[in-house]
Nucleic acid binder design. Structure first.
Length: 273
DNA sequence: CCTGAAACCTGTCTGC
DNA sequence: TGCAGACAGGTTTCAG
């Protein structure tokens, strides 16, 4: 569920509330949530750690502690919530950090995750988790030329390649469908068939749609990610049968790489020689 | 190397 | 109303 803009939104939302606080203790309610280390070791080592900063790499949220990093991946249904006053865990809470701020106020940072796919790593070697990620799409290392060259190093369907976090880190199902539509590229087109001009358009589409998502505080489908409103501006995602905003033809849905995929059949055509 | 399927989970919605 | 089946924003692993 959360893709780069939603994770960025959550990072910004919790930053002001937790930075400067100290972790008093931790509860692990669903042990598999903790990818590493063991629950016992985690509880010992996390105690007393001060939260120095909150950041993000791709879809990972990072709590920078004094001696460790806490890496959090929300996967499909994860969320982070800061609560004050409450003691009883909410339904679907999987891991809770109990915090004390500089001025002595108590709060908790809860990792809530209905589907239990989310994972948390507590480590002093974040590169072991983050090392294989591709470039950040909003950083300057990601250029049109880089995209063109790397698309041509592969011969893969465009959509699964863009979803591959080792290729480019941060896009998920919604934003990939949106940017392929903006760039007028078909999700099944082969990566090495993309022209320089198309690569440039795709690069521009990726950056603009991610920035738009962040500006709108992400997308809130169903009950998740309260606050965001990017879902009201989808061009193709979740719009099967509705008109393409560009040409008016009905949006079609089919499956690509096991993911629901939305295209305009007129705007997004595979060119073949 | 590339693709597709299955697995990990719970909740919601659809159709019979 | 009940129930089976499909589907959901992600990632890993395995078979062909």
């Amino acid at each position: 569920m959360p893709e780069l803009p939603e994770v960025e939104t959550i990072a910004r939302a919790i930053e002001t509330e937790v930075v400067g606080g100290t972790i008093v203790s931790a509860d692990v309610l669903w042990p598999r949530t903790l990818a590493a280390p063991s629950v016992k070791k985690f509880k010992e080592l996390v105690k007393g750690q001060k939260i120095k900063a909150v950041s993000r790499r791709a879809k990972y949220l990072i709590l920078v502690l004094e001696d460790y990093n806490l890496l959090i991946h929300l996967r499909m249904s994860g969320d982070l919530i800061v609560r004050t006053g409450k003691i009883k865990p909410e339904k679907h809470d999987r891991l809770i950090l109990f915090l004390r701020s500089k001025n002595g106020r108590e709060s908790q940072l809860a990792f809530n995750d209905t589907r239990k796919f989310g994972r948390v790593w507590f480590t002093d070697q974040p590169e072991t988790v983050l090392g294989k990620l591709g470039p950040e799409p909003l950083e300057k290392e990601f250029t049109p030329q880089w995209l063109f060259e790397n698309l041509h190093k592969k011969k893969r369907q465009l959509k699964p390649l863009l979803l591959d976090q080792a290729f480019l880190a941060g896009l998920g199902n919604i934003y990939t469908d949106e940017c392929l539509h903006i760039a007028k590229l078909h999700p099944l087109a082969l990566s090495n068939s993309v022209s320089q001009k198309q690569a440039k358009a795709l690069h521009e589409a990726i950056q603009s749609v991610l920035k738009e998502g962040i500006r709108r505080n992400g997308a809130s489908i169903d009950w998740v990610y309260r606050g965001g409103d990017f879902q009201n501006y989808f061009r193709v995602y979740d719009r099967e049968g509705k008109p393409c905003p560009v040409c008016g033809i009905e949006i079609q849905k089919f499956t690509v790489g096991q993911r629901g995929t939305h295209v305009c059949p007129k705007c997004q055509v595979i060119e073949r020689k």
